[in-house]
Amino acid sequence: MIAAAQTGDGDADDGELVVNDRTCIVTREATDPADLIRFVAGPDGQVVPDLKRQLPGRGCWVRAERALVERALQRKLFARALKTDVTAPGDLGDLVDRLLVADLAGMMNLARKAGQFVSGAMKVDNAVRSGEALGVFHAVDAAADGVRKIDQARKAWRLGTDAEEDIASFKLFTLAEMEELMGQNAFIHAAALAGQAGEGVVKRATKLETYRTSGHSGANGGAGRSRT
């Protein structure tokens, strides 16, 4: 469903913004809030990302793609959508990325405590072959041989179960980035397992990857999801 006409390059036209709880202020495309990022005006007049969609006040939405967040910033769409004199920090795209990263790391730690996130090549391989893994994670600088072996396990699982898709695979952080982010819980290979917390990890990883890679935004960070 499209909330308003779009221009040829996918941007909204320059008419009056149409804003509702499910409309991206850049594309004017109405979609699931899970695929959007909410922004509100903070007490200091700054635009604030509201990832949990809980902050009070009027909000506006941008599809979770860095290129679109930066486009909204460049076109000064936040003030128009929020109908107030707000300013957006020039590093808003980086800020959203950091918040998405922190959200993912927090869910990984929660899933680990719940027994739904394991690390180590052997544990990941076993989780994949047993069908318990919902998604696998590799450090961007992980050894190619280790990644290849887990990819083989993913392929064997898919062929053995006639699944339409492989278990999701992500490369989002270097080992050094993870050590800074997660300390002793940093990993080279890991897997999110079946369960609510494991599902939360995959959901957040997918959103972060989409934010970084959609629209060829050139965002920092590792390679994206693999289905090979």
Score class of each variant (00 low, 15 high):
A156M: 12
M178L: 15
V47C: 07
R129P: 13
G106T: 09
L36R: 03
D151N: 14
G93T: 05
G10E: 09
P43T: 11
G224R: 06
G198Q: 00
R225V: 09
V62S: 04
D162H: 07
M122L: 04
L82K: 04
V140I: 10
R212V: 07
L110E: 15
M182K: 03
E29A: 07
F187S: 00
A12F: 00
L181R: 13
G215S: 07
R66A: 02
T84A: 09
A105W: 07
G222S: 12
D11H: 10
L208E: 03
Q54S: 04
L36G: 08
N109Q: 11
K171R: 15
Q116Y: 02
F78K: 06
E209H: 12
K207Y: 08
E70A: 01
G120W: 08
A156D: 13
L159P: 02
K171S: 11
A111E: 01
L110V: 13
A102M: 04
G10F: 02
V18F: 02
G15I: 06
Q6C: 10
G200V: 10
T84W: 07
G222Q: 05
N126T: 13
A30N: 00
R80Q: 09
L51H: 12
L100N: 03
I2M: 10
G42C: 07
R38M: 06
V128G: 00
F39Y: 14
A114M: 07
T161D: 05
P43A: 12
G8S: 12
V147C: 10
E180L: 14
P43I: 01
D91W: 02
F78T: 12
A163V: 11
A190E: 07
A102R: 07
D32H: 06
H189V: 01
V202S: 03
G93F: 09
V47I: 05
R225F: 03
R98N: 12
S169E: 03
Q184W: 09
K155S: 09
A72G: 03
L73G: 01
G160F: 06
R58H: 13
V124K: 08
V62W: 01
R38E: 03
A4I: 04
T84V: 15
R158C: 02
I167L: 00
R154C: 14
H138N: 12
A12T: 13
N20Q: 08
P56A: 11
T27W: 00
T84R: 15
Q196N: 05
F117P: 04
M1G: 00
F173M: 07
D103A: 15
S130R: 11
A102Y: 04
V96M: 03
V101S: 14
K149L: 13
R58I: 12
T84I: 05
P33K: 03
I188C: 06
